[in-house]
Nucleic acid binder design. Structure first.
Lengths: 352, 352
DNA sequence: CTGAAAGCGCTTACAG
DNA sequence: CTGAAAGCGCTTACAG
């Protein structure tokens, strides 16, 4: 009997029971060593450690967590793994969480799959759920309500204004206000908006910021700002910016400064203007958003807004980890991150 | 007694036992509905489903997996979450795995943390582990040996030549050979290598490809190729390319075509040459690698190599999922992905 | 068609 | 300082 158990092949040890038998100790003792509990003979510890290294035995986390050990996992819902700022935040968050002993579970949350993503996280008993990106309002609000009902902490990064949601987000209004101040200081009074026209989510914040800057100078948005977004299929990329610039270039009377939704649009617009013989910033100024790597690789380099991802993620971790192991807060926690204007070559004084 | 259990607050249901009691059925029955097993009255199913929706109860995956249910999780080790091609592969892989019902666990594997990352995956009983990126040879080989000993399938994406490793990787040698053929066809005979000098991992493959192309024309690498990589701190980014171009521009006699390790270096080099008054491609040709978005945003647009990420990931999924649920293969499986040359504006005929 | 009972691999009082 | 036993929340034969 005993012999039939001892396989001739050194088969993989899959449980503390097998492992304990292998070392010649009780499961209890092995478990204590594994968990670094005090009150063990140094020799015993060493014996277990050595066998651990020799056999490569990995205790089953599922059993441990079933017994109530915390999972130390955080679920992260991503809008998409394609936009550079979102990936930057994911990377920074993952790194920070890892340094605090948490591992990250990642799910891409496309319209309609959010429910499954969150349920999957809950079934894995994550300690909190983070959302990075811009989601359909009703969908994310429904998910947050679920999480609250479930007693699981959550945090939304970068989508402000959601009911009941804890959020950390860049102050996009302040960013646009600073950008407009900069352009107004350069003498610009007519602005072309590239992809920033009224729309869902964060674009509204941007318009608020633009309006605030204009109001300070007693200027009205309707008279100063123009958008041709409706002329082209919206894609928020280089080509979109290029086409918009082409359309603006064809106008008899056109704005002197152009405010892009992001860096790709801005770079596309610069190209579009250059193709029509306009020099940037001599003839027109163009600004971007996000301070992506590409924004300093082009010629001219792009004036843009840095998202301060580090600061965002530090605040995120603080809010998130602060919620762990205590009752959910009654009121949602809201944090705002100050953006930073990055002035480069693509913005200059209005042409006399 | 029974009453004291019914909390006045609608507290969260945390187990099938509680849930079953709530619905008035046995745990067994609830479990069957949850797992979509046949042989249940339609009415029973409906009753459970409704209660499920009402209470938001999520069964504990840890208990289910402990009973032997497969985890349907794949562990992904990333070199870094910063390089665009790696992130592109991660995104594509995550999406594909999700569509097959697998979820992805992601760990960033920095030198020295690999052991913990893999052990963490194993403790969560992932069904396979994927490595994306270029890792320290000894470290990744040790991890792969561990996985093999453990009986867990693995796959390495983009790092060829590892002992015992299943790999799917771009044929970088073929890519460079095609690139050199292209430049040779344009009349170039002297090449500047930007960041491609002898080094670890994939760079060697590239040199092999370059050499092959030259040999076909009876040219020798030592005479045709020049590298100034040693002059600047290696960073593989825009600035590195820019500095290298500056150094090459200062030479009395310089190559006519420059082969960059990646797109950022190529774009930096273009800028560096332009700053020294050299036009691209009129005076010098410059090529990149990866076909990142940025490579068509610059002026001139960059001739580069597309990694065929889709094809890579499809092959990866095939190799990976093919290993599941069967004994590990005796010999490692190796797949090579054909690259695609993308000819744009930055390469042109050699100046007469 | 539904249910009572055993058992997965851990941790944790409780004994010794 | 170490060990035997109970129990976490599921699934799955086995009964009925």
């Amino acid at each position: 009997m005993a012999n039939s158990r001892q396989k001739t092949l050194p088969s993989v040890i899959r449980s503390t029971a097998e492992f304990a038998q292998h070392v010649g100790l009780a499961r209890t003792t092995v478990s204590r060593v594994l968990n670094g509990q005090p009150g063990l003979k140094a020799k015993t510890i060493e014996r277990v450690q050595r066998a651990l290294a020799e056999t490569g035995f990995t205790p089953n986390a599922f059993a441990a967590h079933l017994k109530g050990k915390r999972t130390a996992m955080i679920g992260i819902c991503m809008e998409d793994l394609a936009t550079p700022p979102a990936v930057g935040k994911l990377a920074a968050l993952q790194k920070l969480l890892r340094s605090r002993g948490f591992s990250s579970l990642i799910e891409v949350f496309t319209p309609g799959t959010g429910r499954d993503a969150v349920r999957h996280f809950l079934s894995l008993r994550v300690e909190a759920v983070v959302f990075i990106g811009q989601f359909l309002r009703e969908e994310i609000e429904a998910r947050i309500a679920e999480l609250i009902a479930n007693g699981t902490p959550h945090l939304v990064i970068d989508q402000a204004g959601l009911a009941q949601a804890n959020t950390v987000s860049l102050d996009r209004a302040a960013a646009m206000e600073a950008m407009l101040d900069h352009l107004l200081d350069l003498g610009h009074r007519r602005f072309g908006l590239l992809g920033v026209s009224t729309g869902p989510g964060s674009k509204i914040d941007r318009l608020v910021g633009i309006e605030a800057a204009l109001r300070k100078r007693r200027l009205a948005m309707e008279e100063c700002c123009q958008s041709l977004d409706h002329l082209h299929e919206r894609a928020n990329d280089f080509e979109f910016g290029r086409k918009l610039a082409g359309s603006f270039a064809a106008l008899e009377e056109r704005p002197t400064a152009f405010v892009g939704l992001n860096d790709a649009i801005a770079i596309g617009a610069v190209r579009g203007f250059q193709e029509r013989g306009l020099k940037v910033p001599r003839d027109v100024s163009v600004t971007g958003f996000n301070n992506q790597e590409i924004s300093h690789m082009t010629s001219p380099t792009i004036t843009t807004v840095d998202q301060s991802i580090e600061k965002t993620i530090e605040a995120a971790a603080e809010v998130l980890l602060g919620q762990l192991g205590r009752p959910l807060p009654k009121r949602p926690e809201l944090r705002t991150i100050a953006p930073q204007l990055v002035i480069r070559e693509s913005s200059g004084p209005v042409r006399a």
